[in-house]
Design a protein around this nucleic acid. Structure first.
Length: 165
DNA sequence: GTCACGATTTGT
DNA sequence: CAAATCGTGACG
């Protein structure tokens, strides 16, 4: 039978649960894709490193929209970073996709390899060429938790999740 | 309007 | 360790 996309209800949960749940799922875009093996959670509250920390602005608008949509932003003026909007609509949590199996590590390298750009910002992962297909959930014991990479504020929080081979 | 800075990557 | 490179948010 054909693979199916993860349902809206999967994303409408606490950000950390969505982050853990995304490990092992399959991200696809225009014929390219693979298993998600590294993610980071950016919380809707108390997280100074999250873009939503500064409030609702033009850039962060999609974070406040429906869960299950893509939030893409430009980092350092040259790299696009792909996030998945989590939490119920109105609550700005999101999960940064840092690595997809077979396409290299690093959020910037990943989007470049898959051809994801700012054009995909706001796209619905349930009804667009950019989608996440359901796969067996990662075993809890196969997930390593560490602090997030490349941030200064709230750098001590254990919000990076890596799926070990 | 102006300005400092960043959820990165790559080369020295 | 430093450059590349530019949109965003803070400040006035």
């Amino acid at each position: 039978m054909a693979a199916r996309v993860l349902p809206r209800s999967f994303y409408a949960r606490p950000t950390v649960e969505v982050a853990r749940g995304l490990l092992g799922q399959r991200l696809e875009f225009r014929g390219r894709g693979g298993r998600i093996v590294e993610v980071e959670a950016y919380l809707p509250e108390g997280d100074e490193a999250a873009h939503a920390w500064r409030g609702r602005t033009a850039r962060t608008e999609v974070l406040f929209g429906p869960p299950g949509c893509a939030y893409v932003f430009l980092a350092y003026g040259m790299h696009c970073c792909l996030n998945v909007v989590a939490e119920p609509e109105g609550t700005p949590g999101c999960v940064l996709i840092r690595a997809v199996e077979g396409w290299g590590d690093g959020p910037g390298k990943l989007t470049r390899a898959l051809g994801i750009t700012l054009e995909q910002n706001g796209w619905d992962l349930l009804h667009s060429p950019l989608r996440i297909l359901a796969a067996p959930a990662a075993r809890r014991e196969s997930i390593t938790v560490t602090p997030r990479i490349g941030i200064r504020r709230s750098a001590q929080l254990p919000l990076r999740f890596v799926l070990e081979s």
